[in-house]
């Protein structure tokens, strides 16, 4: 299956800013059943875009815009080929718990087993675990399926109720949230069981399917590492396994490792961020901008720590 993806991000500032520096994680990964055939990134105002591969293998692009500007637009276009994912059995043998144990003791999965900034245990998570009796039983795969279904059943999908830096407690308390929250809850539960889990950001092609998540936005889900099968994707937002409709752009311990955009600028201004995404089978030409519905929200004014004196004092001099 071939997809063409268009991802538009627009920052509008309440007053002119300058010296913007930004990092972008939008290029689809090429690995396993997915291959990025083409990727184009352009900004307005224009800039020289440079890139690197981060330590998790994500492609990061970055640029700086020194002059004054009141709007910054990032246009990312990609063509991706996705083939069907590896077929999984219904369940694994109970022995898999044991295999997992030795895998975790010997290998490089440390980062995906310990709590991270957004995916960590908490009292509310413990309550949730007790409530649904989430503990090692059956086999890891079966349990992960159950957890995915549980999140789907127990949490309402409610856009704009949480923000990018919401903790899982917020979602657990309200029993609602968006894909990012659900992925974090699932990751925290999985790690708690001793299963390496990581966060994936990307896109979901809807194509008429009745998914809960919004079709015109970026998506996020969780991956768990299973012996003999590697990283397996679970999409608790829609209670499905990841497959031919999921396109991965970046992976990390949690959202903090893989924000699609991360930037800083000079100036005092409030930022209004609009994002539009369109994923379509590639037989059709890439859609024009007017066809993409943009979603806009206004962020809090950026909290800049301007206590210079305090930061200067905090520096450790050994």
């Amino acid at each position: 299956m071939f997809y063409s993806i268009r991802h538009i991000t627009r920052f509008s500032y309440s007053s002119p800013v300058s010296e913007s520096a930004m990092e972008v994680r939008m290029q689809p990964r090429s690995e396993a059943n997915q291959k990025c055939i083409r990727f184009d990134l352009a900004t307005q105002p224009r800039s020289k875009i440079q890139g690197y591969r981060d330590h998790i293998g994500n492609i990061v692009h970055h640029f700086s815009i020194p002059g004054r500007h009141q709007q910054l637009k990032i246009n990312a276009e990609a063509t991706v080929e996705v083939t069907p994912a590896l077929a999984l059995p219904q369940a694994l043998p109970t022995q898999a718990w044991h295999d997992l144990e030795s895998l975790c003791a010997s290998d490089e999965y440390w980062d995906y087993l310990v709590p991270s900034r957004y995916a960590h245990s908490s009292e509310l998570l413990d309550v949730f675990k007790k409530e649904w009796n989430i503990e090692r039983r059956d086999d890891p795969l079966t349990l992960l399926h159950e957890i995915s279904a549980l999140i789907y059943e127990e949490f309402d999908y409610a856009p704009q109720t949480t923000s990018v830096d919401s903790t899982i407690d917020h979602a657990l308390e309200e029993r609602r949230g968006v894909c990012q929250d659900f992925a974090h809850v699932m990751i925290a539960l999985g790690r708690d069981l001793g299963i390496p889990c990581r966060y994936v950001s990307g896109y979901l092609y809807h194509g008429g399917a009745r998914d809960r998540s919004a079709a015109d936005a970026t998506h996020a889900w969780a991956e768990a590492y299973l012996p003999d099968f590697g990283w397996i994707g679970f999409d608790p937002t829609n209670n499905i396994m990841t497959g031919e409709r999921h396109i991965r752009t970046a992976v990390g311990r949690d959202y903090a490792d893989v924000p699609p955009t991360k930037g800083i600028f000079k100036g005092k201004a409030n930022t209004e961020l609009s994002v539009g995404v369109q994923v379509s089978p590639t037989e059709a030409p890439p859609p024009g901008e007017e066809m993409i519905q943009m979603h806009t929200w206004i962020s809090e004014p950026a909290q800049i720590e301007d206590d210079l004196q305090q930061q200067q004092q905090q520096q450790q001099q050994q």
């Binding site: 800083i264 909290q303 930061q311």
Partner: peptide
């Protein structure tokens, strides 16, 4: 003579004004 955390707000601590973005 500035700690790691503060040298680049784009990569490390976002609020730092002791380093240089990028």
């Amino acid at each position: 003579r500035v700690d790691d955390d503060f040298i680049d707000p784009l990569t490390f601590r976002p609020g730092s004004i002791l380093g240089a973005p990028g």
